[in-house]
Design a protein around this nucleic acid. Structure first.
Lengths: 220, 220
DNA sequence: TCTTTGTTTTAGATTTGTCTAAAAAATATT
DNA sequence: AATATTTTTTAGACAAATCTAAAACAAAGA
C-alpha cells in the first residue's frame, strides 16, 4: 500500500462516510470538510489519477475498490486509537475523537496490527462503532433504534415504527424519510432529545419520543 | 504552547541534537536533515520570526529558551512513544525509532502526559536515553564510557583515560578530541567495535579497545 | 423552451516547504 | 595582502493544497 497525505486521507474518509448507494456531490464534500467546492474539484482530479475515486466532471464521485480499502484502513486506525485512548489512557468518550484524528494518519501497518493485538482485537470503539479487521472487513448492516445510535456515526433511516399522519407530518417537515443519511451529534440526558445532522443541512433537534420510533442501519 | 509543523519540529530537534555550547552551522544542519543549505537558511528565517532560534546571517544558529523547551517536548514525545512501542507492543529496539519519528508530531499535551502515566513515568527509553519530564527537565551530564553509550545519542567527548602518544595519534587521525560531538550508529558484538559518526563527517569505525578509553557526556 | 437559480469547474493567486543556480560573504592559501 | 576556496545567502522556480472570482454547466420554474 502506497502512502497518502493527511489531506488525501481526510477526503477519502469523508467520501466513505457520505457515500452509500448514491454518489457524493462537490458541495456535500465541501461542507463535510469545511472547505470550498473549488478545492474539492482540485482534489478529486488528483484522487482520480491515483485511482481512488470514480469521477467525471459534474457527475459526483464514488470510491473505487482501492479507495474503499483505503477508507476502511483509515477508519480502522482511527477506531483502534479511540479504543486505546479510552481503555488504556482513560480519556473520556468525548475527548477521544479529536486526538484520534491526528493519530489515524500515522501509517505504519505493523504499528496498527500490533496495537490491535495489544488491545485484544476489540470489535467496537468507545462510541459503539465497529472496527474493521486487518483485512478491511467491517461488521455491517446492523439495524438500531436512532436513540441508540452512537455519536458521529453516519446511518441511514430504514424503518419508522409509528406511521400515523402526525408522525409522518413531523418527519416530512424535518426532511427525514427512508434512505435519509444522518448522524447524531449530541444526546441530552435531561429529556432524551437528540441533536442530529442531515447531509448538507445544519443541525436540528428531535425529541426522545420521535427518536424511539426511527430505526437506522449503519453504513456498509 | 502554539502548534508547529512537522518540518519546523524536525529542524528544532536537529538543532538541539547538534548544538551544545557552540552554535550550529547551515551545512551541518543540511547534512543532518538530508536537505539543501538554501532550505536551511529559509527555515531559519522563519524560526527566527517565531523566536525559536537566535540567528544572524552568516553567524550560525542557537535555540532560544522557547526553542529549547520545544525541542525537549518533542524529544519527550519521541522517547515515550519508543518506550510504548518496545514495552507494550513488543517492537524490537531497532524498529521503534522510525515509527516514533511519526508519532512524535502528534501534539496533544494531554495525550503525552497520560501516556507517560500509563507507562509508569519511565526515565529512560529503550536505547537508554533519558526521557524529559512533563516540565521539560531531563537528566543531564552523566558521564559514560563510549562503549556504553546508547545508539543514536549525541554525546560529547570529555575525558580520555589512556593518554599515550600512540592513543593520541590515533585520536587525532580520527579527528576526535575533547569536546567532539559524536553518536554511536552501530555496535558489533563480535569484536566490540563501534561505528560512530562525527558532526558533518561520514561514519567511521573504532575498535572496542579504543572505545573503552573514551568517556563522553550526554548533551544537556 | 427560455430563463433563472444553483452547482460545479476553471483560471489565477497564495502559502509552505523545497529546490537550483548564481551572488555575496567568510575563511584559507599562497 | 591578494587570491582561491568554501560556506552561506539571495533570487527565482516548483509542487501541494488551498482560496477567490468568474465562467460553464445542470436543474428548476415560468
Amino acid at each position: 500500500m502506497l502512502n497518502y497525505s493527511t489531506s488525501e486521507e481526510n477526503y477519502i474518509k469523508a467520501i466513505y462516510h457520505l457515500q452509500k448507494e448514491g454518489s457524493v456531490t462537490t458541495n456535500e464534500l465541501a461542507a463535510e470538510l469545511q472547505t470550498r467546492p473549488a478545492s474539492v474539484t482540485d482534489m478529486m482530479k488528483k484522487l482520480r489519477t491515483k485511482k481512488l475515486v470514480h469521477y467525471e466532471a459534474y457527475k459526483g464521485f464514488k470510491l473505487t475498490v482501492d479507495g474503499k480499502k483505503l477508507a476502511l484502513l483509515i477508519i480502522r486506525r482511527h477506531r483502534l486509537w479511540e479504543f486505546f485512548l479510552a481503555e488504556k489512557l482513560k480519556f473520556s468518550w468525548e475527548e477521544v475523537h479529536a486526538v484520534a484524528e491526528d493519530l489515524e494518519h500515522v501509517s505504519s501497518k505493523k504499528l496498527i496490527d500490533k496495537l490491535d493485538e495489544f488491545l485484544g482485537f476489540p470489535r467496537y470503539d468507545p462510541h459503539g462503532d465497529p472496527i474493521p479487521d486487518a483485512s478491511g472487513k467491517i461488521e455491517t448492516g446492523k439495524q438500531v433504534c436512532l436513540s441508540d445510535l452512537p455519536l458521529n456515526t453516519t446511518a441511514i433511516v430504514c424503518y419508522v415504527s409509528d406511521q400515523s399522519s402526525a408522525m409522518l407530518e413531523l418527519l416530512s417537515h424535518k426532511k427525514i424519510g427512508l434512505g435519509t443519511k444522518l448522524e447524531v451529534k449530541k444526546k441530552f440526558s435531561f429529556d432524551q432529545s437528540l441533536e442530529i445532522k442531515l447531509r448538507q443541512q445544519s443541525a436540528t433537534n428531535i425529541s426522545g419520543d420521535l427518536a424511539k420510533n426511527i430505526f437506522v442501519k449503519y453504513d456498509e
